[in-house]
Each structure stands twice: as C-alpha cells, then as structure tokens.
Computed example of a mutant assay.
Amino acid sequence: MALLSRRSVLTAALGAALAVPLASAPASAVVGGAPASTTAYPWLAAVGSPIFFVRPSGQFCGGALIKPDRVLTAGHCVSMFRSVPGLLTATFGRDELTGSGGETVAVTSVRVHPRYRETSFRDETVGHHDLAVLTLARPVRRPLASLGSPGSARTGRIAGWGFTSENDLFNTRLRAARVPLPGDAACERAYGDSFDPSDMVCAGSAAADSCQFDSGGPLVARGRVVALVSWGYGCGKPGYPGVYARLDSLP
C-alpha cells in the first residue's frame, strides 16, 4: 500500500470541510512517543479551525508562542488562510483535544515567510522556508518559547497531537518523543536535492518521528525550539528521517 504523505490526509479532509479544491494543505502525533503534558510546553499551541470538524478543537497543526500575541508555525499549515485568518484559532494548555481545558484565541492575521515555496518528493509536498507567524486577537499570558539553533546537538524532543502511526487516525492526546539529529547527510541520502540544509533540519528515525497533524510543532534541543515539523516521506519509515524548518530567518 502506498504511503500517505504528511499532508495528504489533511488536504483531503480540509477539502471536504471547505467544499473547495485545495492546491496545498497543512499536515503532519508523534511516532514512538509517550503521553505528555502542556505544563512542560506552556507555549505550545494547537493550531486549528472550527471548520475542520473532523478533529477535536479543529486541530491540524502545532505552533509556538514567541510573543504574547504571536504564534510561530509552519507556512504550509496556514498559507491557504492568508485572506481569511479569522477562520484560524490557537489553543493553549489542552493535553487532550477532546477536553475543555486551556484557552482558545482567535487569529487576526497570517504572515508567511516571503521565500516560502513548494517542490515535491515522491508526491510529498516539500516546503522551503516553511515558516509563518500568526497574530492573535489578544495577548496570551503564558511563558514564551525560547528560540535557537540546533548547533551540535545530537538529540531533541518533539511534541504534538497527531498520528502515532501512519494508520492511527484517532489520537487526540498530546505526546512527545526524543528523536536523534543524525545530521544533514542522513536527509541528503534519503531525499537528495529536495533536502536543503540551508533552511531544513534532519531529525527522527524509524523508532521516533513526527507524523500527520504534527506540522508546525516544535523540535526542541538544548531547551530551545530550534525547528518546526515540516515534511517527510511516511512516518517512522526506515531510511527517511523527518525534515524540519530552520528558524534562522523568521518571516
């Protein structure tokens, strides 16, 4: 059976929800992880939309609070909402999406990285400079994410509410996992020219990886968010690590 890309499930679901064809869509919980609490990630946002009724809280991506009224997420998650930012929300402090805890804040504007563009790898959409900033309708009184570079870190942590395997359609619990950072060469071997080390970070393995509905979520190393879940071929597929968007140039 052909592998689903990290965006294909969400593209189909959002297309049905909107009843319009979509050129691209957000996607990509954590394969090989364990249940986690938002108390460990107080700045972590579940990015979603009320129209995305197939998921509790409308969640389809993650994000990080970088200013009281700004959330950093993946560009491919929100590029289609640039003209209708009011359809987006950011939810904080909710371990289980089916619960009612935490707080949900509306989005008033979407700013996608000016150099964002898309190519493809085996039918998987590849986002370059895959970053965006959401402006919230009001400031959120929560700790802010510290941003940085992976440097020489060899491991990191990822967190998200997405699939725990390629066939797990129903996970709604926040999960986290430790992932290896194998270096650029591992992703260059897997993806060839589709992997650009100037704006991408290679992380993950067959034992621990991100998956659908994790996109925009954090890769944390040395106590800082160093990249965001962006794309990859399959989830936890041997020989194909996950690819993350570097934060070196924010939109």
Rank of each mutant, 00 (worst) to 15 (best):
V107N: 08
C235A: 12
F163V: 00
T39I: 04
A206W: 01
R173L: 13
T108N: 11
G216A: 13
D196C: 04
V133N: 01
V30P: 10
H128P: 08
A34E: 13
R82L: 10
G216C: 12
F81R: 01
R154P: 05
C187G: 06
F170H: 10
V20H: 06
I51G: 14
A176Y: 02
C202L: 10
T73C: 14
A203S: 05
R173G: 12
W231S: 06
T89G: 04
V30D: 03
T91C: 12
F60Q: 11
S57N: 12
T38N: 14
W161K: 06
L65E: 09
L131A: 10
R6W: 13
A46F: 11
D214F: 03
S152E: 02
H128K: 12
S210V: 10
K237H: 15
F195I: 10
P42M: 09
S198W: 06
Y233I: 01
P114R: 13
G127M: 02
D69V: 06
A19T: 02
R117M: 10
G239D: 00
D184N: 09
T73N: 05
S152D: 13
E103G: 12
P85M: 11
C77Y: 05
D69G: 07
G239M: 08
T172C: 06
T125D: 05
G242E: 06
S249P: 11
G239H: 01
L169C: 08
T172S: 14
T119Y: 10
V110A: 04
A227R: 08
A177W: 02
A208G: 06
L219E: 01
E118P: 04
H128C: 11
Y41E: 00
D184K: 08
R6Y: 07
A177E: 00
T172K: 09
A227C: 04
V140S: 08
A13P: 01
G156K: 01
A13S: 07
V226L: 10
R178G: 13
